[in-house]
Write a protein that binds this DNA or RNA. Structure first.
Lengths: 202, 202
DNA sequence: GAGTTACGCTACGATACAGTAGCGTAGCGA
DNA sequence: TCGCTACGCTACTGTATCGTAGCGTAACTC
């Protein structure tokens, strides 16, 4: 019963290549619109025109526009890569932050981030999606810090969540708000400043 | 000639109370819409309906919608307050950051910030407005840091712009992106961590 | 091969928005 | 008081969007 009234729930695992193709084309077009013109520009008609998929087909596969925007953003994400957990903490932190900076300055999903940040302000579903995504990405940083604390490289009284915020907050701030320089040298400065206060053997 | 073809340029200093009243009502309604529903929801028809001012009057006073959104945001801002430049640097920094946190968690303009951040992504005029606004607000922090460096309270090799980013970046990050706790205790943690690495007499 | 199903196409009705024109009124300022 | 002007109102044109319905076709599954 639920599968007949909500066929779109199963669309993702559909074996029918027609569904797979149209779904991919729809998500690609939706993601492009999201990147280029923001969340409010992701319209069903626009997706249809751009993807070549009929409007009716889009409505058949998704029951709400916000669900579609959600999926479009998800389709842009690469799976999080795991970082090696050896080496001095300074190198580990740079190995974490430099890809973040690269992503925020050149990846596709980065262009959607401001749109989603704004959409999250008024759309609880979107907020949950975004925060869930970020929480996953942050887990690498948290475990890296915990390990360094256990090894005695960092002060044992660090609050991990706050430390992570201090490391990545300045990066997001420059990307989203101030537009100031965002490069590897800046990452090195952040890490320097952080370790100067957080390292045990300063 | 310029005043007759572009009367809206002078509207701000108009002595005609009719203009003053309608302008205020329009900006109030536009700001409300901006806060409640984002930048793309600020429509002329919506402002007219909400403010009770005729659509034609709005078009008479503003020549573009983005200019109106601009002015609506500006109308929300309180003039920047000047901070006392005495006392230890820790107190000065907290005196700067706590009002920022308060503003970002409870002021009207804070609700418009995510919308403007997103709009800035694709609207150069809006970007310039937002960055100009932030630059003005940051100047307090910059001069405070410079004075403390001159007094010898902070390391003389600090890069002021990067130091400011490290202080306020985490705050904006939590407000815009992660949604984690944002209170005075967090400010104290930021300042602690910053001074642990930046103070001369650590 | 036969039945099923996803698709494209066209055509809706409804709503919302931009932006403009004309006209009469009421408030303002000198 | 009298002229000026900002205003409100109505009525447009034109565009874009939503979401749905019906129908024929082509692709896929078994």
């Amino acid at each position: 019963m639920s599968s007949s009234s909500h066929p779109q729930v199963l669309a993702e695992e559909s074996r029918d290549p027609r569904v797979v193709r149209s779904r991919a084309a729809i998500l690609r077009a939706a993601a492009d619109l999201l990147i280029e013109s923001g969340a409010s520009a992701v319209t069903i008609g626009g997706i249809s025109e751009r993807s070549g998929v009929a409007k009716t087909t889009i409505y058949r596969q998704w029951k709400s526009r916000s669900q579609l925007v959600f999926d479009a953003f998800e389709s842009l994400l690469a799976p999080a890569t795991h970082i090696s957990e050896s080496g001095p903490i300074r190198q580990q932190l740079e190995a974490l932050l430099i890809p973040l900076v690269r992503g925020l300055t050149s990846s596709e999903w980065a262009l959607a981030v401001p749109a989603l940040v704004d959409a999250s302000e008024r759309d609880p579903e979107m907020r949950q999606l975004l925060r869930g995504f970020l929480a996953g990405r942050k887990e690498n940083g948290r475990s890296t810090l915990r390990a360094a604390m256990a090894r005695g490289e960092l002060r044992p009284d660090l609050v991990v969540d706050e430390a992570v915020t201090m490391l990545i907050g300045p990066i997001y701030y420059r990307r989203l708000v101030s537009g100031e320089t965002l490069d590897e040298r800046f990452v090195a400065e952040i890490v320097d400043q952080f370790l100067r206060g957080a390292a045990r053997t300063s």
